[in-house]
Amino acid sequence: MDEFGAMDSPAHRLDARAKAVATIAFIVAVMSFPPYELSGLAPFVIYPVVLLALSGIPPAFILRKVLIAAPFAICIGLFNPLFDRHPVVLPGGLVVAGGWISFASILFRFALTVSAALVWVASSGMHRLCAGLERIGAPRAFVVQLLFLHRYLFVVADEGLRMRRAMDLRSAGARGPSLRVYGSITGHLLLRALDRAHRVYAAMRARGFDGRVRALRETESRIGDAAFVVCWIAFFAIARKWNLAEALGAWITGGAR
């Protein structure tokens, strides 16, 4: 994710605030559709696809990340086909339970929102993203937390990995560690993380930290950024109000319906 954040492309050069506002508007619009909607959501694919194309990030990367998160969405929608059994007739004359439609709708929304959010993060880089969030009014404490979570997650994960390896080397081939050992490892990891947090904070205070992380590059908004936000929000509003997929279909088939 970090390497992509450091790339340079039209999508990267956009103000982080513009991307934040557009992406949040996108997510709100997608989530506001009624539960059985499918075709109305289709035009929204354009946003993540265009942003992805502008950013030059390999689509396979985003796709992989979406798949990793997919089980969550599947869990959420899993029971819809079981509980919601009222019949719905599909365009081909096929009859399915309504739950299947809402399940598909959940998965579709999930793919849309997660891929948009991923492209947003990957094409901004964590620090620009955080700076953008702060400047559109996100609470400072939250932004600083996010920045540090991103910085130290790997350090703490590495520490946990090393402890796990040291334990494996002395566990005489036993499969998993006992609950007691796991508890101890987690406890140690927590204590170490606390110690580290104290040291990091001391190091920050030593360099004059006062609760605000100041950015070296203050990006100023340009006309292009404003246009980006306005055009996308207009598009989301139109696609939310009218079913563009149906309209397109009707237009192609000469309105014969």
């Binding site: 620090h127 920045l147 540090f148 991103h150 910085r151 040291r199 990091v200 920050m204 992380v213």
Partner: peptide, 8 residues
């Protein structure tokens, strides 16, 4: 690692 906490 305690001292270097910024993104770049």
């Amino acid at each position: 690692d305690d001292q270097l906490f910024m993104p770049t």
